[in-house]
């Protein structure tokens, strides 16, 4: 594995039992994730994006192949439907990972406070998730992930449950955080435009069984001009690829 890479995915395959047979979801997936890059995985529904992300996050095992890390990293995840613990308040949710790490109370308090402020959640510390809007819930989800200072942040379609305006705002916040904190981000998106706006590289997966169809480096300056010809060229290229594969 090259020194600048943090994750290497080699020949990963995964199947799930369906109606008595094994349904192949991922087949011979190979790619590498570079340190501190923002990588997006896109593809049609059912191509195994979420499965691949969960394999990389060590939530489900591979059938064949392997996932290698340069060293055992601290990982965190932001979920599509927020996955906030409903019995905990905002500050308790943000503190969850820190509590599991066994950090001292003062350190927990400090990090919770920092990340609540960074995500614009000040004043909502004692609220429960059911009292929050979707956008606020996802901010809590992101704050919870950032609190443990992850080296790799996995995001599973984090904006798909939000309205257009909230999603747009959160994307900008996420970009700022990524640029500031210098972590590696691997994100799943079903929106090609979103992937091109945010990522250094985009990986296009084929429909099930998912395999890597294209790895495209996005050579556009940041902040990305979403109305530029170059931006649309990337969108057209990848959309065409996904459409053809359908």
């Amino acid at each position: 594995m090259e020194k600048s890479n943090i994750i290497k995915v080699s020949e990963v395959a995964k199947s799930f039992p369906l109606e008595g047979e094994n349904q192949l979801v991922l087949d011979d997936v190979n790619f590498e994730v570079q340190k501190e890059e923002f990588l997006c995985l896109v593809g049609p529904s059912g191509c195994g994006k979420s499965t691949l992300l969960r394999i990389m996050a060590n939530l489900i095992p591979v059938d064949t192949g392997r996932i290698e890390f340069t060293k055992k990293p601290t990982v965190a995840m932001v979920f599509q439907n927020f996955a906030l613990f409903p019995w905990l308040t905002v500050d308790q949710n943000v503190a969850f990972g820190l509590k599991m790490q066994g950090l001292p109370q003062e350190e927990i308090k400090k990090r919770v406070s920092e990340n609540i402020e960074a995500m614009g959640l000040k004043g909502l510390e004692k609220k429960h998730p059911k009292e929050l809007s979707g956008g606020m819930k996802q901010r809590v989800g992101i704050a919870r992930a950032l609190a443990i200072k992850p080296e790799i942040l996995f995001l599973d379609e984090p904006f798909s449950s939000l309205d257009v305006f909230t999603a747009s705002r959160l994307r900008q916040d996420l970009l700022s955080i990524w640029q500031e904190r210098k972590m590696t981000i691997v994100m799943i998106s079903h929106l090609v435009e979103e992937a091109i706006e945010l990522s250094d590289r985009v990986i296009v997966l084929t429909p099930a069984p998912g395999t890597v169809k294209l790895i495209e480096e996005i050579k556009l300056e940041r902040p990305r001009n979403k109305r530029s010809e170059e931006f649309f060229n990337y969108v057209d290229k990848m959309s065409e690829l996904i459409k053809i594969e359908k």
């Binding site: 939530l59 599509q80 613990f85 599991m100």
Partner: peptide, 10 residues
């Protein structure tokens, strides 16, 4: 997803 969140966060 709550199970997964609990696992991811240790």
């Amino acid at each position: 997803d709550l199970e997964e969140a609990a696992t991811v966060f240790g």
